[in-house]
Design a protein around this nucleic acid. Structure first.
Lengths: 193, 193, 193, 193
DNA sequence: AATGAATGAGAATTCATTCAT
DNA sequence: TATGAATGAATTCTCATTCAT
């Protein structure tokens, strides 16, 4: 009935887009299970049935959100693949990743706060793969366990910082810079040890 | 009636405990919302109503789990309060926290993976307070934003490590040591910079 | 599919109405608490969930019944407000009230027999206000306690008569006339004393 | 297990009595269905199971309450039977009935407000019979429909007054007198017309 | 004279989903 | 491009009741 859940044609009416927006907002705030289609449709001023015109299932809505998100990360990974594995490259990866994160903050927050749900949400595995790819591009040539932890910690702190820092006073941009600095330090140390 | 039936009837005074065990197991695996009381009671071989004899609500079950968990953390905080704020103390805090984490791994994993749920679970706020307390005890005297991030990152990486490292090959104890090392490094750097 | 099956499928736009009808019938007979949504839906040949499409809660169903009932009473009160406070007016109030009562007999009977339930049913208070209004319009200018009781007794006897007289032999219309006569006497006496 | 639910032996421990007291209080306020055994036992500081030591079922508790109540009414009826059917006697019946009412006000209030429940409570029918008996003793020799209504109205107003007058300002004793006066008037009129 | 532990039945409510229009 | 009406399956929770101790 729908022409394809991938993502074309979302420029005709803007309803599809609006569903995604509202869904993201609610799900980021309340979690996947707690957010009902009724709630989404009510906030949109349409009926539940309307959602089913645009998406095959509830999960489909979330999946569609992540598809939009995956693209920049895939591009980042593709880019990283073609660079020499220097420290400079790794730093640039973190910088770029920080930008991707900032551009899709609510979605990352959702992921961060609903990891359990993610696991049964089909795209969960996809995302994990990406993270593993990215981690591999951060690791130094000789990988000790400690260094692996450092790089992982760098990546993870960037995610977590995204939403934890909301509670800390201070300018958002500065906080992002501080996170990036710490993450870069970690990767650098991994490289130098 | 004697042993030999599929599920041995170990009815004694331990039902409450058994409910907690099963609940923790299921909830850690599937998340809070996805785990129904039916599931818990069926796996236990009792009726749903029996759960309500021991706990007032579903949330109450989870809360009871966390109460057991809070105690060691509160003790750690109390201990920290009485120590001099030296780097040595901070390192010891991390070490002890690592032990607390290891002792209640499934519960921390649940927290880690269900942060969204935690927020509406009443004990969510309690736990956040503890984390803030603990973080305060890790911070150096002069706190720059970057150093705050470092300490936060140390704490958070310990949590995250708990469950992410399951996917990595290697001895569990070694992995814990590596995480503790990275966390200690982070706090040390915060202290020295 | 055509007529001939046990319950003719009169699905049209009338489901909401049918729910109200069945609910009134069952609730008048068994009381509010004793009447379950399962019972209502089964007698209707729909699922429980269908009820929730038309009404937000069980209480909502009852409230909707009473809203239909309130209108004529409100009109009566409005009318009374514009009349001179003569004895003639008061008699007319009783007459009209008797008609309203007869038109919504089952509902009044429910109220009469479930006053305890009414108190927690939200419309309970509303209705009480109406009764007080109506009573005020029946009172003579100089109100002794005894006269207040007389008027109250008049009003209340009309309600009670509604259902008690079912047990007494005789023509319904005549019984109504007798009740109205007694009530009118009471108000008249209040007026003359 | 219980020696008999009728009512002997309630002087040993006073628990039985206390159960009745609390049950009456709660049921008068909330109705029969809404009052749970859990509530009763909690307010008493005993377990639900304890209630079952003293009463066979929930209904049994209520029945026991009514048994205590029926006695004075039965005595009143017995007394009435032996009097000459004069107006004076009828007036005295009302007076005595008023006293009985006052002595068991909460129970009458329960009856008044839960007529629907009464019908399926087994003693419902019993009570109805008593009322009919009493009514018969109030009726004049030549009974017109109107006069029957008057007497019924007298009886009913006494009941209803019991609890409606709680909302009216003024001394309780005076209010009772006013009600009795109106009721007596009604019966007198029935007699004279 | 009472409790601790449990049950079976049932309640109200919510949800994702479907389909004819 | 939607809506109105409905469903089936599940959920949390409550209740009266039982019984061994």
């Amino acid at each position: 009935m729908v022409t394809g859940s991938s993502k074309p044609q979302q420029r005709r009416g803007n309803t599809r887009q609006r569903i995604q927006d509202v869904a993201l907002e609610l799900i980021a705030e309340q979690g996947y299970e707690k957010t009902s289609l009724r709630e989404i449709s009510e906030r949109l001023g349409v009926t539940k049935a309307a959602l089913y015109y645009h998406f095959k299932t509830k999960e489909d809505i979330v999946v569609s959100l992540f598809e939009d998100l995956m693209t920049p990360i895939d591009e980042l990974i593709a880019w990283a693949k073609e660079q020499p594995p220097t420290l400079e490259t790794k730093r640039e990866i973190l910088t770029r990743y920080g930008i991707a994160l900032a551009n899709a903050a609510p979605l990352f927050r959702f992921m961060q706060e609903n990891q359990a749900q993610m696991r049964e949400l089909s795209i969960g595995a996809d995302f994990k793969d990406r993270m593993k790819d990215l981690l591999d591009h951060l690791l130094p040539e000789t990988v000790t366990l400690t260094n692996r932890v450092r790089c992982f910690s760098a990546l993870f702190s960037m995610h977590a910082g995204m939403f934890v820092l909301r509670d800390v006073e201070g300018d958002l941009e500065e906080k992002r810079k501080a996170i990036l600095e710490v993450a870069t330090d970690l990767v650098t140390q991994a490289h130098e040890s």
